[in-house]
Design a protein around this nucleic acid. Structure first.
Length: 873
RNA sequence: GGGCGGAUAGCUCAGUUGGGAGAGCGCAGCCCUUACAAGGCUGAGGUCACAGGUUCAAUCCCUGUUCCGCCUACCA
């Protein structure tokens, strides 16, 4: 659903800009999604009872390519199904030859500048995927766990205890991960903590091992948390690693958990080979038997999970490649601060800055096979000094035949591949042909806009900005539009495990792509997540239907139905034998009004799209087509085009106006609903649309407004609605034509109404009408008060007032009886206590309804009585 | 712990420089009027979370409170 929204928004922008005359490039493509893709294929292999190591690297990669060609097409199929108007001829994939070339170029250049380096330090490791993860690829989830207080005996002889200090010769440490104690190499306390001051420099006997470890000072220790003493496990905790490196001399690193999540030999014979969590249980049991557990507390703490397979990650010390992004990040911050890149909504800029300002070096190596192999080779011989200085490392754009340092033929390529995001970061220019200076690159870089969801601001957006500045010397895009996340109706994130995933393809099957697209857009308010509701899609399917019917009505009234084409000149419509030269400025009020409204709406939509207010644009066109064009204009136009009234001249004017408004509305709507608009548009007579497809017709913009017509029309609307209200309130049969008197408050209102009586007649079913500033309220009439007029409907002859009042009074008596009954029931405590809550709620709702019904009938009676026709009767 | 966002009609949500409280769905009444009953017309329903403040005027600006959601972080 997220991708659907993303695609639709980009398609709207593309279609809108294309129709507005821009040379639009929307380049489609996919990345190779290294870890995720490899996992999928590995699962397949597991089902076949084998694994990638059996298969070997080359065969495994071949296998993934096969999978990619079969299933990668699905994404493209979905994009097309959504109507995405991409340039399919330029579709790219991150493992394409061209993009791979760009990847190697970037790697080598960064290496040569000293910005790429290899280091051995703690990284987040996924024991299941068996690879390093970047900081971003770890998701933290808060878990309820135990904080275990473990007693570490002081090494005898026990030094004198300080005042109020440690009793019993122990230092107690608190930990959430007891199994890591097997790799502890120190206990840290705050240097100013009086409880422990005297023990700094002494040692404790690390339980379950034969080691003695030092008590050291470190400022990071919070004396108020736990016992104020922290066990230090440099090999399995990022903080502890920092403490270890800070300490002089640096503390020893003892790795007790291996890459597979099992305990290593360092953990001791008793624990070696055990799963880390099994080991935790055993350690706790053993400590308990030694009476070394002081207590356990419930404790909430955040645990890192692999973002691909959700396995709990493990900090692990391994050699990895890193990009030093400190300097590039500074530039990336600057371009946003200076407004060269705008992030919309602006509030995301803060998020961006916060991350960029604290950015850490980017771990780019992954211990998987699906991806760009790192272009680094290691010389196995290192035959000369030069080679040894380089540590035998060869970094090259092309696969080297021999070691450039010493000439050895024994070169072995680094086994690792690059983080997928490394290649994605180059997308804006790698897809346009970089590092070659192509025409595409010149024409389309920098791009105008990137549309994406916030969850990849760091993964993708920030890195594209950094790489774009670094290698193109120019930002990769001007605007970044961050759209909402699509959630389920309850506001929960959609996920397979929750089972609340909505499949866009099913939505499109059920309601059509246009309705589905429109729903996503109409709900896409800036800065707010979308709670997706299927009912809403149904509502917009009705809109498609409404539009279809309106178009059908208009086509039905073209005469002849298929006007022959007229070559050259202005062209023209054939309507009842009249050809060409149809006025483009209707003289009737309704026509002038709808064209002005159309102009206003066109402005509104263009403005909204310029500011990425997609939902405003969508609602604007929806409101116009349904509630102005269909509900008002088409109804009014009927008075012109139906044979009974109106002459041929106005008929043609109305016909033209209907077609013109339809055509313009379709073009306005097209970016949102590409399919139905094209379909209808193709059916409109040719002279109205000279282009072969609505996709490349002109987007409406800067049409003339007619404020006078809009103002004048407001009088008509007020009058019609006033009369309808009276009819509705008094339940006057729709088939009954009535007489009306209108007292206007201004001469203008009087004139306008006078000139446009036909609209009142058709829209409010009025027979005779009297109006003016001097009109008196006729005896026995109902009244509606509006801002520019007072409307009177004489009831004599329309209703039998007395009978009507009698009927209503009878009704009201019944209602009052029911109210009394319910009232008694709802005051009955026994009922309230015993009845199910649902029933009580229902009864209460019923009560409310009856009350409002009573008020309503009362209002009608009052109106009838005010009509004062009783006496007359 | 830090930061961001939300709280408006029964439900889902708009509300762009402070002055009219709105839409869709739902609900009630009337209507099969020759484009559309997947429709038309009419209507009911809201102290715009709470408390203060600024202003002639606050849903909107400021402060605080409560309740949700999210991001982020080295409390073991």
């Amino acid at each position: 659903m997220g991708h659907a929204l993303n695609t639709v928004l980009q398609d709207i922008l593309s279609r809108w800009k294309r129709m507005s005359g821009s040379n639009v490039l929307w380049l489609p493509g996919t990345d190779h999604a290294g870890i995720a893709t490899q996992n999928v294929v590995e699962k397949q292999l597991a089902a076949e009872g084998t694994d990638r190591h059996n298969l070997g690297r080359e065969a495994f990669i071949k296998r993934i390519w096969k999978w990619k060609t079969e299933y990668g097409g699905k994404i493209i199929h979905q994009l097309k199904r959504l109507g995405a108007s991409c340039d399919w001829s330029r579709e790219r994939f991150t493992l394409d030859e061209g993009l791979s070339k760009a990847v190697r170029e970037v790697f080598v250049r960064l290496y040569e500048e000293g910005l790429i380096y290899r280091d051995n330090r703690l990284i987040n490791w996924c024991p299941r995927c068996h690879t390093a993860l970047s900081d971003l690829e770890v998701e933290y989830e808060e878990l309820e766990g135990n904080l275990t207080y473990i007693k570490y005996p002081l090494t005898p002889p026990v030094p004198p205890l300080s005042k109020g200090g440690i009793e019993g010769g122990y230092i107690t440490v608190a930990t959430t991960r007891p199994e890591t104690m097997l790799g502890d190499t120190a206990v840290a306390v705050h240097p100013d903590d009086n409880r422990y001051k005297n023990f700094i420099g002494k040692t404790v006997d690390l339980p379950l091992t034969k080691r003695k470890i030092l008590i050291i000072p470190d400022n990071v220790v919070d004396p108020s948390f736990g016992t104020g003493a922290v066990k230090v496990t440099p090999s399995h905790d990022f903080n502890d690693e920092a403490i270890a490196k800070r300490h002089s001399p640096p503390l020893e690193f003892i790795t007790v958990i291996g890459a597979d999540g099992r305990m290593t030999a360092n953990a001791g014979n008793r624990y070696a080979g055990m799963d880390r969590y099994e080991c935790r249980k055993l350690v706790l049991k053993d400590l308990n038997e030694l009476n070394l557990i002081e207590k356990k507390e419930k404790h909430k703490y955040a645990v890192g999970h692999c973002y691909r397979c959700k396995t709990i990650t493990e900090p692990l010390s391994t050699p990895q490649w890193y990009v030093n992004v400190q300097f590039i990040a500074r530039d990336a911050i600057r371009v946003v601060k200076e407004g060269k890149i705008k992030i919309i909504p602006k509030t995301w800029e803060n998020t961006y800055f916060a991350w960029m300002e604290n950015i850490k070096d980017w771990c780019i190596s992954r211990q998987i096979w699906w991806g760009h192999r790192i272009p680094v080779w290691y010389c196995k011989e290192m035959k000369n000094e030069k080679c040894r200085i380089q540590n035998g490392t060869v970094v090259s754009r092309e696969t080297p035949e021999e070691c450039p340092h010493c000439g050895s033929k024994k070169l072995i390529q680094d086994e690792d591949v690059l983080d997928t995001w490394f290649s994605s970061a180059l997308w804006p220019f790698s897809t346009l042909g970089w590092p070659d200076e192509t025409a595409d690159l010149k024409t389309f870089y920098p791009t105008n806009v990137l549309v994406t969801a916030f969850d990849i601001i760091f993964f993708w957006v920030a890195r594209m900005i950094m790489m774009g500045i670094k290698f193109m010397g120019e930002v990769p895009f001007r605007d970044v539009y961050i759209h909402a996340l699509v959630r389920d109706i309850k506001g929960q994130k959609m996920s397979k495990s929750k089972g609340n995933v909505v499949d866009p393809l099913i939505m499109m099957d059920r309601y059509g792509t246009d309705a589905f697209r429109f729903t996503l857009v109409a709900l896409a308010a800036q800065g707010r997540d979308i709670k997706f509701s299927e009912e809403r899609v149904e509502g917009y399917r009705h809109f498609v239907n409404k539009l279809w019917n309106a178009a059908r009505f208009i086509m039905m009234n073209i005469n002849p139905p298929n006007p022959p084409l007229v070559k050259g000149g202005e062209g023209g419509l054939f309507i009842k034998g009249v050809q060409g030269g149809i006025s483009h400025s209707p003289h009737d009020l309704a026509g002038r009004w709808i064209l002005s409204r159309l102009a206003d709406v066109a402005d509104d939509i263009n403005r909204a799209l310029e500011e990425y207010r997609f939902n405003d644009a969508a609602n604007s066109i929806y409101q116009f087509i349904w509630h102005e064009f269909c509900d008002w204009y088409i109804e009014m136009a009927k008075s012109e085009i139906q044979p009974v009234s109106g002459g041929p001249k106005s008929e043609i004017g109305a016909m033209w106006c209907l077609l013109y408004t339809l055509d313009t509305s379709l073009r306005l709507l097209h970016p949102f609903m590409p399919f139905v608009t094209e379909e209808i548009w193709q059916k409109i007579p040719h002279p109205i649309h000279p282009s072969p497809s609505i996709m490349i017709s002109d987007y409406p913009r800067s049409l003339p407004r007619d404020h006078r017509a809009e103002e004048d029309m407001s009088y008509i609307i007020e009058a019609v609605m006033g009369i309808r209200t009276i009819r509705g309130e008094l339940n006057i049969s729709p088939s009954l034509k009535i007489n009306v008197s209108i007292k206007t408050f201004s001469k203008t209102a009087e004139n306008i109404l006078g000139e446009n009586v036909q609209y009142l007649k058709i829209l409010a079913k009025v027979d005779k009408i009297e109006m003016g500033m001097t009109v008196e309220k006729p005896e026995g009439s109902a009244t509606a008060v509006k801002s520019s007029m007072e409307i009177y409907v004489p009831l004599k002859g329309v209703l039998n007032i007395e009978a009507e009042i009698n009927r209503l009074e009878k009704d009201i008596a019944e209602v009052e009886e029911s109210i009394a009954f319910l009232n008694k029931k709802l005051l009955n405590e026994e009922f309230l206590q015993k009845a199910p809550a649902e029933v009580v709620k229902k009864e209460k709702a019923k009560y409310e309804k009856l009350i409002s019904m009573k008020e309503r009938i009362g209002g009608s009676i009052k109106m009838l009585k005010e009509a004062e026709v009783r006496n007359e009767a």
